[in-house]
Structures are given as structure tokens and as C-alpha cells.
């Protein structure tokens, strides 16, 4: 318990003065507010067609692009925050000062959890605040579909946050780690668009790659039946194969599996490495 306090205190001292952290968080907050604002203005001016801009319907509008990009902001924040610490060799000094490598890692894990919470709370607080300001009638906080949507967003945050964690811990330079993350986007997108042409049976499996999972977790079509129905109408008109709700169990299991794998690999790398 005392050790947890120590870890929290040093992470706080360090994070407080990191522009990289406040910048990524600030930019994300800015985008969130800017995205919600036009909807709010419309609601204040009497509202448009479609569901009211208030709880619980508001979540569908809030957790859409670009706010659903939160996971990538989190990954970038993780990289900017963690990667340089290994490059500066300050982790080594922490160990010299008496912190075990395991504690050091645990401290990073706590920061990860807190950052994840921050990137989750920003759109939630924005949604609630917008709903309070909006004159439209308010219902419950969220129903099944909206809770699912939030849960999907939280899982996407965990997945991409842990990817940021892994890249920071293994590459140890923020520039290089960010570069590799973007390279990975490109490669995954190329793979998922080329491979099914050769072997259509593989497409199902490719859906479990991190970027595709992000898509699955945050797309409105996969959380709201009416959105799915509308999307499928269009697809049918264009002769494309129809979409179906993903297998929730498989998606959740693969995300948690990835998170455990990435965090685990980060831990093993860090423990084995000479600091």
C-alpha cells in the first residue's frame, strides 16, 4: 500500500510537467468539444430530425468519428509519455535509487490505467454536459445499445493503449515508435484489402487484427440495430455482402487477449533488458 502511494506520487510529479501529455489530452478535448458543438447549437435552435440530442440518444452522436479516435490519441500519449523515459535511462536511476524493476513497471501500468480513464471520461463528461445544456427531453443515462457502444469504446482504448505501451517499451524513442505505429496501420490495411482477394476464407480471421477490431468496437452499425439495418439496405442496393453483428464473445476475448499479450511482452522485455 505504501509502495502504491510512492508509485502514484512519482508518476504524478513526472506527468504534471510533461507537455506531451497535456498536449495530446488537450487536443483530444478540443476535438471532442468541437464535434459536439454543432449538434448542440442545432438542438438549441429547435432541434433537427432524428433522435433528440440528449441522454441517452446523445451517445450515438458523441462516440462517433472523430471522437472515437480517442484510442489512437491514447496510443500516441502513451508513446510520447513512456518511450523517452527509457531513452533517458532514468528508469535505470529509479532502480539504483531503490525501485524494483517490477515496481517500475507497475507504476507505468497505473499511469496507463489513469490515462485510459481520462480518455474515456472526456467524451462521457462532454456528452452529459451537452445533454444538460440541450433543451431536448432527457431520458435515462444509457440503454443497452449505448452501454455497449461505451464498452466498445473502452475496449478500443485498452487495445490501442496497450499497443502504445508495447511500442514505447520496446522501441524506447517516441519518434520511432510513432513511425512504426503508422507503418503498422498501412501494412494492416494493405493486408486486409489484398489477402481476401486471394483467399476469401481468411477475411473472417483478419477482422481480429487490431485496426479492424477498433472498427468493429466503435462503429455505430455494430451497436445499434437500426444503424445496421440502414447500412445493409445501402449495401444490398450496391450488391455488397451484408453486415452482421459481430460475435461479441470472440471480440471481447480477442481484445483482452491482445491487451494481456502486449502488456505481458512489455513486462518481459523490460525485465530482461539492462536498463
Amino acid at each position: 500500500m505504501k509502495r502504491l502511494g510512492t508509485l502514484l506520487r512519482i508518476e504524478f510529479i513526472k506527468a504534471r510537467k510533461r507537455p506531451a501529455l497535456w498536449l495530446t489530452l488537450g487536443v483530444f478535448i478540443f476535438f471532442t468539444v468541437v464535434t459536439v458543438l454543432p449538434n448542440l447549437v442545432r438542438a438549441l435552435e429547435g432541434g433537427g430530425p432524428g433522435p433528440p440530442f440528449a441522454l441517452p440518444w446523445i451517445w450515438r452522436a458523441v462516440l462517433q468519428p472523430p471522437i472515437n479516435m480517442g484510442p489512437f490519441f491514447l496510443a500516441a500519449a502513451m508513446i510520447l509519455l513512456f518511450a523517452p523515459e527509457f531513452g533517458w535511462k532514468t528508469a535505470g536511476q529509479n532502480v539504483i535509487d531503490g525501485l524494483a524493476k517490477e515496481h517500475l513497471f507497475f507504476g507505468k501500468l497505473i499511469t496507463f490505467a489513469l490515462l485510459l480513464a481520462a480518455f474515456f471520461i472526456v467524451p462521457i463528461v462532454t456528452g452529459v454536459a451537452a445533454s444538460i445544456i440541450s433543451p431536448e427531453p432527457t431520458g435515462t443515462f444509457a440503454r443497452g445499445a449505448e452501454l455497449n457502444h461505451m464498452f466498445g469504446y473502452a475496449l478500443a482504448l485498452s487495445l490501442w493503449g496497450s499497443i502504445g505501451f508495447l511500442l514505447a517499451a520496446t522501441i524506447r524513442a517516441s519518434g520511432g515508435a510513432l513511425g512504426i505505429m503508422f507503418l503498422y496501420f498501412l501494412v494492416e490495411n494493405m493486408v486486409t484489402s489484398i489477402v481476401p482477394v486471394w483467399n476469401p476464407a481468411l477475411e473472417r480471421h483478419l477482422n481480429f487484427l487490431p485496426t479492424q477490431l477498433f472498427d468493429t468496437l466503435t462503429r455505430t452499425e455494430f451497436h445499434y440495430p437500426d444503424a445496421l439495418a440502414r447500412a445493409n439496405e445501402q449495401r444490398a442496393a450496391m450488391g455488397q455482402p451484408l453486415l452482421d453483428f459481430p460475435d461479441h464473445g470472440a471480440v471481447v476475448a480477442s481484445v483482452l487477449g491482445f491487451v494481456a499479450l502486449f502488456v505481458g511482452v512489455s513486462f518481459v522485455t523490460m525485465r530482461k533488458r539492462d536498463l
Binding site: 510512492t6 510537467k17 532514468t90 536511476q93 535509487d97 531503490g98
Partner: peptide, 24 residues
Amino acid sequence: TLETPNFYPYMSGRDNLRVAATIK
């Protein structure tokens, strides 16, 4: 201390010592 001093470059000398003092 080891070879080159390893501190957080963006923090003040004092804050760096605060981190070390907290650990110790």
C-alpha cells in the same frame, strides 16, 4: 550514480530530487 547523470531533462533539479527522495 552511474556514469552520466540520468535525470528527467524537462524537470527542475529539485523535482528530480523529489522523485529520488520519494523512491528512497
